[in-house]
């Protein structure tokens, strides 16, 4: 398995390079070979890899990365050939059709998925975020830090539903996007470090069903993060379910706050 960390020099500002490390280690711990390839800008993007990871970055480097990826073409060809993509924050915006450049004007994305991002009009979304994503490993915990909002096109499903935080920011409490083998999100943490079920989901898209791994460290981290959010969140949830309608950002269903042991998905 080859995992490419795409342009860590441009899209490595928020620690998202950890996602590639998590993917590779989780395969190695199961006795399989895995290699992380750091692919800096200025050189061709490796053509034959199994998973490509794109992370968050500043406005200028984001525009540079989008232009370089469009010109290089390897990423789009790899996706057409069945590669999996995890795109985070600026990476999420880059794999879409358009996003706002540093000057606020729209720039062309790589167009791997039908989403469009623009500058938000409100405050920058900064803080802990909790997302319910039943098909992607249950509850996703992370940290968001973005000024952009992202609209999903008709063929694109959200990654999950926002229980606390902002997410895509376009109404409907959606977070992230999933289309084919591209998974995109605003969650840092890095997202795969905090949500091993999502990591295993991506790996299983490539290698098929995997045995569960014991993760005591990450289970404790998830419990702590969920508990830190949970106090305020549970309160809002009670209020919301007591009313006639369901609060837009509050889950009405009982979602277990404690992480489930080995809560990754069934093979799909």
């Amino acid at each position: 398995m080859r995992v490419v960390d795409v342009f860590p020099d441009l899209l490595g500002t928020y620690g998202d390079g950890g996602n590639a490390v998590v993917l590779a280690q989780r395969l190695r711990w199961r006795g399989m070979g895995a290699e992380v390839v750091r692919a800096p800008s200025g050189s061709p993007v490796p053509a034959s890899a199994d998973i490509y990871c794109l992370g968050g970055g500043e406005d200028g480097p984001q525009a540079q990365a989008a232009a370089a990826l469009a010109e290089d073409g390897s990423l789009a060809r790899a996706v057409a050939g069945g590669a999996v993509v995890l795109a985070v924050c600026a990476g999420f915006q880059i794999v879409g059709a358009t996003f706002a450049g540093a000057d606020g004007r729209p720039r062309a994305g790589v167009g791997l998925i039908d989403v469009a991002s623009r500058r938000g009009t409100g405050r920058r979304a900064v803080g802990e975020i909790l997302v319910e994503a039943p098909e992607m490993g249950g509850l996703l915990t992370g940290y968001e830090n973005h000024g952009g909002v992202t609209e999903l096109g008709p063929g694109v499903a959200p990654l999950g539903r926002v229980l606390a935080g902002v997410g895509n920011g376009t109404g409907g409490a959606t977070e992230g996007a999933v289309a084919g083998r591209v998974v995109a999100t605003y969650l840092h943490g890095p997202v795969l470090a905090r949500n091993p079920a999502l990591a295993d989901h991506l790996l299983e898209m490539v290698v098929g069903p995997l045995p569960a791994l014991a993760d005591p460290d990450v289970e404790e981290l998830r419990s702590e993060r969920l508990a830190a959010l949970g106090r305020g969140w549970r309160r809002r949830q009670r209020t919301a379910s007591g009313g006639a309608g369901e609060g837009r950002r509050h889950g009405g269903r009982g979602v277990p706050l404690a992480p489930r042991r080995g809560d990754h998905l069934e093979a799909r």
């Binding site: 490595g12 928020y14 620690g15 998202d16 390079g17 950890g18 490390v21 900064v126 803080g127 940290y143 830090n145 840092h188 943490g189 890095p190 470090a193």
Partner: peptide, 9 residues
């Protein structure tokens, strides 16, 4: 800084 993601750097 409220986000410790930098630990991965």
């Amino acid at each position: 800084g409220r986000d410790p993601s930098w630990l991965w750097d």
